[in-house]
Design a protein around this nucleic acid. Structure first.
Lengths: 116, 116
DNA sequence: TCGTTTCATTGCAATATTACGATGGTTTTT
DNA sequence: AAAAACCATCGTAATATTGCAATGAAACGA
């Protein structure tokens, strides 16, 4: 039906999936990486940097803002965006905790059980 | 249009977004974590473990298999799934490299520029 | 062989996502 | 005040995703 059954999963699983979903578009990855490389806040540059329309960029920025990954502040006629370090570190922690699993011992056991 | 303009981004950005998208559903997170906790391969258990229909679980397993995160091998009438450690480590590396950015110095600069 | 178990696949309905043109609001510049 | 610059939002079209019932396909046991 196009809607996820979030009530079946833990809050952490839903949160991890939600932030992964936010990162699940190359434009949003590119926006984040450009924000980081510029080491400061951007706005209309993203429209020129990536090849997407202004409305599309604005839409992606909104999603990133909703997720908390970035924040923006008014700066004259333009809006200055930057990474939100608190959310950034929180999400890094979530992914770290997720990927830290699967030590060597488990790898061996799994390979054995799966054959192949 | 519902379709991403992948040609605008680097291969790495597309790959990172793709794997993030695969992880962007709580059922797939739950499947992965259950596979890890069982330390071996599962199949029909997932239908009982999560509250989703068999067809739905099968669909999620297919996506995880397409991404390479898991692999399955026939085991009698059932199919044994497990984490694919090579892909796992590769994706962990991608996320690590992504999140490793934003050292303390940049945090300070960004906060200053953004006001707030 | 026949039924059972276990999955994958198909077909469908409901909803979500992606992209963009057009429009409007806010702030600066002239 | 008028024009310009910048951005968010609305509306729309095309496509993707989610979930499930129903149906097949493959392997096992009686």
């Amino acid at each position: 039906m196009g809607v996820s059954k979030t009530e079946l999963f833990t809050e952490r699983q839903n949160e991890l999936a939600s932030i992964a979903k936010t990162l699940g578009h190359p434009a949003r990855i590119a926006i984040i990486e450009h924000l980081i490389s510029i080491n400061a806040c951007i706005c209309n540059d993203l429209v020129n940097e990536l090849g997407l329309a202004q409305a599309t960029i604005s839409q992606h920025l909104k999603e990133l803002k909703n997720a908390g990954i970035i924040k923006g502040s008014v700066e004259g006629t333009s809006i200055c965006y930057c990474i939100n370090p608190e959310a950034w570190n929180k999400y890094r922690g979530l992914f770290d905790a997720f990927f830290v699993h699967l030590p060597t011992l488990k790898i061996a056991a799994c390979s054995t059980n799966c054959g192949d």
